[in-house]
Simulated assay, not measured.
Amino acid sequence: MTILYDEGQQAIATESRRVLEARISKDALLPLLESVGEYHRPFWDTAKEQGWTALALPEAHDGLGLGLIELGLIAHQAGRSLSGAPFLTSGFGTAKAIELYGSDAQKARWLPKLASGESIGAIAFAAGPDTLPAQPDVTLTDDRLSGIARGVSGGLAANVAIVLANGPGMPVLALVDLTGVERTAVPSFDNSRCVANLGFAGVRAETLAVGTAARDAALHILALQAVVTAHEQTGGAEVLMEIARDYALTRRAFGQPIGAFQSVKHRIAELYGLVELARANCIHAASREGAADFITAAAAARLSATEAYDTAARDCVQIHGGIGVTWDLGLHLHMRRARSLAIEQGSSLFWEDVLVDRLAGEAA
């Protein structure tokens, strides 16, 4: 596709922005920072009501049959509005894992529930700082999972998870029903992410892929989620750029708007450049779903969006001066979200390695 959205996609973006701006407010999000295990239920109710949970899933399983491009548009607007729940991304990743690697029975059981939002999915791949560890902390033996999956985004509320585990001499990608699984809340910088440690003590699991195929599948699922997250980061960076611009045009110092000073105007111009580069990378990555270079494009989108959101969060606070760090203004909500999203689906170091490996392989 081109780097521009068509009329139908623009309508999705416009309508989702209108709905989210009407239903999400800073005052509703601030209390979540001090409440471990809570998320913004009106956002999740809206996502289900609007059909966003079904957007990129096949029609045969109650989805809408659209794709990553359209889901990215929703994620972009969610990033602008600071959606107070991670389930749109994790549910999509879980559903795609089942759609791509699951059996017909697994698809029939889980995909309609994930499409409706009745069930929430989570992805549990990481072990400590390793996004795709060679030796996961969870082991699968005789179709039973044992161990602890740590720092799982959305884990406190999820009903089903895709887990990367140690199998008999090889990695295994497993599907597990989380009913009855022990969950320990992990207080975090952004508590609305509902991060949890999942304790598996002989929990029954179903195998999706084994060996090299399991690691390849896990990377592909991470890349799909990374593109959604990159759109969310770009949306956050975009709205912060606009907030900084508007403040710089109204706040006066030494007889003129502070936007007239080069140190401020140049910084906002740089933010504009970062946002547009991230947006272009996101559109390109979403359009390459299913192509040979998809993971390369996903890594580029993830890296550019992380830089844009981190820089915008920092610079917007600085442009506001002292008021920028106050609780009531709420810029710290974006600062916290920028830092949270920067490590979900793998840090910049992880995606830099993925990008270098892919480009080196193409060069060879």
Rank of each mutant, 00 (worst) to 15 (best):
G63P: 05
L66H: 15
L68S: 12
I69V: 15
E70R: 08
A75S: 12
A75R: 10
A75N: 13
H76D: 11
Q77A: 12
Q77G: 05
G79Q: 15
L82P: 09
G84R: 08
G84K: 07
G84P: 11
P86L: 01
P86G: 05
P86T: 04
P86Q: 07
F87R: 05
T89L: 15
T89P: 02
T89E: 15
S90N: 12
G91W: 06
F92E: 12
F92Q: 14
F92M: 14
T94Y: 02
A95T: 05
K96E: 03
I98P: 00
I98N: 00
E99T: 14
E99G: 12
L100E: 09
L100P: 06
Y101L: 09
S103V: 10
S103M: 07
D104T: 11
A105K: 07
Q106T: 04
Q106E: 14
Q106H: 07
K107V: 02
K107I: 01
R109V: 07
L114Q: 00
A115S: 09
S116T: 13
G117Q: 04
S119K: 02
A124G: 00
A124W: 03
F125A: 00
F125Q: 00
A126K: 13
A127C: 03
A127I: 00
G128F: 08
P129E: 08
P129V: 10
T131M: 04
T131Y: 00
A134E: 11
Q135T: 09
D137H: 07
D137A: 12
T139V: 13
L140W: 00
D142W: 05
D142S: 13
R144A: 08
S146F: 12
S146M: 07
S146L: 06
G147W: 02
I148N: 08
